[in-house]
Structure formats: C-alpha cells, structure tokens
Design a protein around this nucleic acid. Sequence first.
DNA 1: ATCTCAGTTTAGAATTATTCTAAAGTATTG
DNA 2: CAATACTTTAGAATAATTCTAAACTGAGAT
Lengths: 131, 131
Amino acid sequence: MNMTKKILRANDLRPTKQRVLIGDYLFDGIDKHVTAESLFKKLLNEKRGVSLATVYNTLHEFCKKELLNKITIDTDKVYFDTNISSHHHFFSDKEKLLLDIRSQDVIISSMPVAPKGKKIKKVELIIHLED
Amino acid sequence: MNMTKKILRANDLRPTKQRVLIGDYLFDGIDKHVTAESLFKKLLNEKRGVSLATVYNTLHEFCKKELLNKITIDTDKVYFDTNISSHHHFFSDKEKLLLDIRSQDVIISSMPVAPKGKKIKKVELIIHLED
DNA sequence: ATCTCAGTTTAGAATTATTCTAAAGTATTG
DNA sequence: CAATACTTTAGAATAATTCTAAACTGAGAT
Ligand SMILES: [Mn+2]
Ligand SMILES: [Mn+2]
Ligand SMILES: [Zn+2]
Ligand SMILES: [Zn+2]
C-alpha cells in the first residue's frame, strides 16, 4: 500500500485523493519548507487539483498530528517544515528564504527556566541574515 | 528640552506632536513590548489622538533608527520591543504574551557560520510556552 | 513674523494571508 | 447498497498592514 496512505491511516486521517497527493509530495523523504501558497502552486501542475482551502486544512491537520512543524518567522506567511527533527533555521528577510541549520551546528548550553505554571513547548532559534 | 525631542533630533526625525507623544511613552525607561494596536489604544486615552497610520509610520521609523526592535514571532501581529539590548524571549502562543529572558539566562556556545555571501544580522531565540 | 517647502499626518481604500461558511462530495462501516 | 460522519470546496469574511493622495506643519530662509 502507498506509504502516504499508511501514514494517514496511522494518524486517523482518511486517505482522500487530496491528502494522498499532498502527502506524497511532502513525505517523499526530502526535507522541505513550504507555504500554503507554494504548495498550492506546486499541486496545480499535477493532474488533479486541490483547492486552496484544502491545502490549508491539510497543512494544519498534518501539524496537529505532528507530521509537520509550523514555523512562524515572518509576519505574512506561515512556513511548514517536513523536517520534524529538532533543528534551527537561517532566515533571509529580504528573499524570505528559510534554510536549515544542522542540529550539531548550534549548541545552547544554558536555558532559562519557564515562568511559573508554564512549560517549554518548543525552542526556536532563528538567525536572520543580510547580504 | 524634552528628552524625547532630543532623541528625535539626534535621529533626524522632526519632533512632531505625535512622535513626541509616542516617544514619551516608549522611551520612559520601562521596557515594553507593544503592537501597533496596543500602542494605538493606549494613546486614545491621551489628550491628543494619533491616527493608526501614524502609529505604524512611527514604529517603523523608530525601528529603522534602531530605537526599537521588531520581533516577528506571531503571524498576525508584529511586536516592537523598547529593550534594544540583546536578549531573548518567551512566547506564550495561547495568550500571545511576550516575556523577556534575562540575557545571562541563555548561553549559545556554538553558532553556525552564515551561508556564503550572507552575514548574520540578528539571532533570535524564542522559547514557546504552554501550560 | 511671514514665506516656502520638504517632511508628516491622516482617513479611507487597497492588499493579502488566512479563516470561515455552508453546501456538495466521498470514504468507511454495517 | 445505505447511512453517516468526515472531507472538500468556492466564495465570502476577517484582520493586520500598507498604500494613496490630500491636508497640515515644523523649520529654515528672507
Ligand atoms: Mn499581512
Ligand atoms: Mn492575518
Ligand atoms: Zn527546517
Ligand atoms: Zn524584549
């Protein structure tokens, strides 16, 4: 059976045509950073179209199931990362380009304790680049 | 002379009523994280109003002059930080609350080199919180 | 003080990523 | 197949921000 279908079933998501198409692209083993818009455009080329609403729905569902990581780095576009292992990013504000930093290249040797009543959910290091 | 006026003149910004009003609030020595909307509402209480467009204009000008730091942490609101010394943040996604981390509480002991042709402009560490 | 003009403010329109709505379509189960 | 819960979708709505262009104002020159 198609790998994407297995992933979907394992996560209680019905393997619809649209989800399989999106999953086949996102879970092909190649790390990607996509936006709703970039993914939507990519899928327009495919035989079967997927509506923009479905692209948004699916990205959010995949995030909820932790099949993707959401990266909020830019105020007017959300990025979704297919690399769900812990790693950090370079971001070029001018080109709006997001690049992975290999996890061994960053060492955070001291971390603050969370404020009372809160837990640390995620640590996001963003290195903003310029020319 | 009013302190804000001095700051404005030193940065080639005409000390207009609106800028002085905004500056008096932002540069009173108390560290603040504001959004355009929160600042706009705060100023409505004052004797003299400032338009929302001017709030945006002024925040951006102050950023350009490095009197403020822009923090892009949430996709639907930009935060401006009056604490322009190097420091990091906690962010509670649920309450959209931004908290300073004392700079001595984070030690980044290893940093990657910037991609060819790029320089590091800013290092932003965001610790996302949950309950 | 008045003049002049570049710099500034402003209301309202435009933009744009995202979310919402509700109607039509589909996968799954019995 | 039939029933139903889940899913997709077009298009409308939302909301932060930016843009436009007209009115206003601060500051230097006269
Ligand atoms: Mn926007
Ligand atoms: Mn938005
Ligand atoms: Zn990544
Ligand atoms: Zn701060």
